[in-house]
């Protein structure tokens, strides 16, 4: 009797597990807190379980290529060469935006920076806080006679990509000497592992300057620099100014970096974070069937619409109108061997 009950219990558990669709994703760690929240809410309302591993954008892309996940999270866009290594087109669905903040250890609030000052600090050309050029744009601030210690990420990171992409756009010298990437050959400075490593080194070193994810800076009350954008306006990074930065002409495939934005109210070191999926979801992996593909498509649609309400409380910037429109267009392309998944 007991045996029968036991067996039926096991059977029940298994059928329950079997009938439930579970979507698996991996990738960028930057949007992880937001995705956890979104997926938790989606599970509560739609009963779909989503398992997301934050292993870094590079890892996510590798997993997508190896067909071990259903979708990948990435802060970086795939290059044309990278796209060729996949056996089907990959769509870049924008989910939200983030920014890289300049933070420093000098007891002055709201320091202003111009693109060329930032570049020259990170190239090792400006070495003192009371440098004439920094004084000139911060005339009301009492800048100390202190050496600048540059702090940057030591680990490969999307944050580094966004920051160096920005520097490459505003400075030809940077573009030729250093370039942009998840890890680069830094001319000067010391490296910390992760946002917390960089922030720890900055907090400890008087006169240090570095870059971290804006969310990390806000949560830890770090001083944040005000950066001059392309139109000449000094912009403080915030959820609003980041969304503004994305309000420019965007290409349909969304493969664009919006650093050094044309928008006059936009914060210039902002970036999209994406979910990458195969356009033909059947190609994603062997376990993918029509029903699961449909579930995934619905989930992505929800993330760029209803899901956006969870962005601001967690300091992520929601998608602007233009980006949402493009995301919709992209999502309508999703198909399962020719069968369109969303109408």
């Amino acid at each position: 009797m007991i045996k029968k009950i036991f067996l039926s219990l096991i059977l029940l558990i298994f059928t329950r597990l079997y009938s439930q669709i579970e979507i698996v994703g991996a990738g960028a760690s930057f949007p992880y807190p937001l995705y956890s929240k979104m997926f938790d809410e989606y599970y509560k309302t739609n009963g779909v379980k989503i398992n997301y591993q934050s292993i870094g954008s590079g890892g996510g892309i590798k997993q997508l290529q190896a067909k071990t996940v259903d979708f990948a999270g990435s802060d970086a866009i795939l290059s044309d060469e990278q796209l060729k290594t996949f056996d089907d087109n990959i769509l870049h669905i924008p989910i939200c935006l983030g920014a890289v903040a300049i933070t420093y250890n000098v007891d002055i609030k709201d320091l202003k920076f111009t693109p060329d000052i930032i570049t020259d600090i990170f190239l090792g050309k400006i070495t003192k806080w009371n440098d004439e050029r920094i004084k000139k744009i911060n005339p009301d601030k009492n800048l100390p006679d202190l050496s600048i210690t540059v702090v940057r990420r030591s680990d490969g990171s999307g944050t580094t990509f966004v920051f160096t992409d920005y520097l490459s756009k505003v400075s030809n010298e940077w573009k030729e000497k250093v370039g942009s990437g998840t890890s680069v050959n830094w001319p000067v400075g010391i490296g910390g592992k992760g946002n917390e490593g960089v922030a720890g080194l900055i907090k400890q070193t008087p006169g240090a300057i570095g870059y971290v994810e804006l969310i990390y800076a806000l949560q830890n009350n770090l001083p944040v620099g005000i950066v001059q954008n392309k139109s000449g306006n000094f912009i403080k990074p915030s959820v609003e100014t980041i969304t503004e930065a994305s309000d420019v002409k965007l290409p349909e495939d969304m493969r664009i970096t919006i650093t050094n934005t044309e928008n006059k109210n936009g914060y210039p070191i902002s970036a999209f974070t994406y979910i990458l999926v195969y356009e033909n979801l059947k190609k994603a992996n062997e376990k993918m069937d029509y029903e699961k593909a449909k579930t995934l498509a619905n989930l992505l649609w929800w993330m760029v619409h209803e899901g956006q309400t969870y962005t601001k409380p967690l300091h992520y910037a929601p998608l602007g109108k233009q980006a949402t429109k493009n995301a919709e267009k992209l999502l309508k392309k999703l198909h399962f061997d020719g069968k369109i998944l969303l109408k």
Partner: peptide, 17 residues
Amino acid sequence: PGNTIASIIANEFLEAV
């Protein structure tokens, strides 16, 4: 500052594409 073999591997391997 400097770096070691073990440290550079741990730092860059995850995001190396």
